[in-house]
Amino acid sequence: MPELSYRDAVVRGIAQEMARDPDVVFLGEDVAKAGGVFKATVGLYEQFGPLRVRDTPISEQAILGAAMGAAMTGLKPIAEIMFSDFFAVCFDYIANEFPKSRYMSNGQTKCPLVVRTGNGAGSRFGAQHSQSVENWCMMIPGLKVVAPSTPRDVIGLLAAAVRDPDPVIFLEHKSLYATKGEVPDGEIVDTLGTAKIVRPGKDCTIIALALMVSRALEAAEKLKAEHGIDCEVIDVRSLVPLDTQTILGSVAKTHRLFSVEENPRLCGWGAEIVSIVADEAFYDLDGPPVRITTPHIPLPAADILEDIVLPTPGRIVDTVRRSLGS
């Protein structure tokens, strides 16, 4: 199968949807002529022209507000917020406007849009350009929240997000842009709300998202090779809708649960899943669910510091090994 980078998968995913539907338009800062600060939108301006691929001023509220007004009245906009940390300057749209207009209007108002953003740490950018904000979005009723870990999922989940009638927050991991993976030719459309078992196993379940998926997989191989522990790794992929059945099914089989989360400790996405498992699968568990997260601190810039705060394969191995008592 041909290989594609995560970055080029973003371009292909957007292009696939824009070619299919003339109502799909794309706006953001430096996204058109310059091809994006992460070079994840290169060529779209040339392919689809200045009416459909539009550079905006540095006006995050205008970007998201305009996307919403266009979505309400018939377009299917994709809006880019360069770094997910910047959600904080346009959070009104994410928290108050997109997700509540349909409900408040008793079903009159629609809001079919996608907000793409560069999320996550690993680039040594420091505390305001490195955060993982999936939990900021997950807590808001009315939104959908997706975070792909592979180039193939980027295309498939982006297509699903664009075709979805609800507002979708699409979190691309900055440290994954350069990674490569196999991607089949032709149209790819995935399904929101589906987790994927990326490594079957019988001794414990590890749930992970985005950059943490490859780290969980690496840890699982080590645990198997060096400690004889057979981990099942689940790529959650979609926080809302959440595929709890896949997770509960796995816990029923392995009897132990670990989450690997990049967001800081308090109110991370894993806490919600742990609470669901505690409610609904308590008697399936042979021990406490364990969350492996970044500590509850702002992210530091220096590589030596950033590297130790994010969950690493080594920390996952140690935590699982100690918890399983081997």
Partner: peptide, 25 residues
Amino acid sequence: VMGSYAIIGAHLPIACGAAWRAQYK
């Protein structure tokens, strides 16, 4: 009547988006 907005200023960009759709289409 495309909504009444209670967060000060929120609807000015939203109105821009509706106008963008008119321009585009």
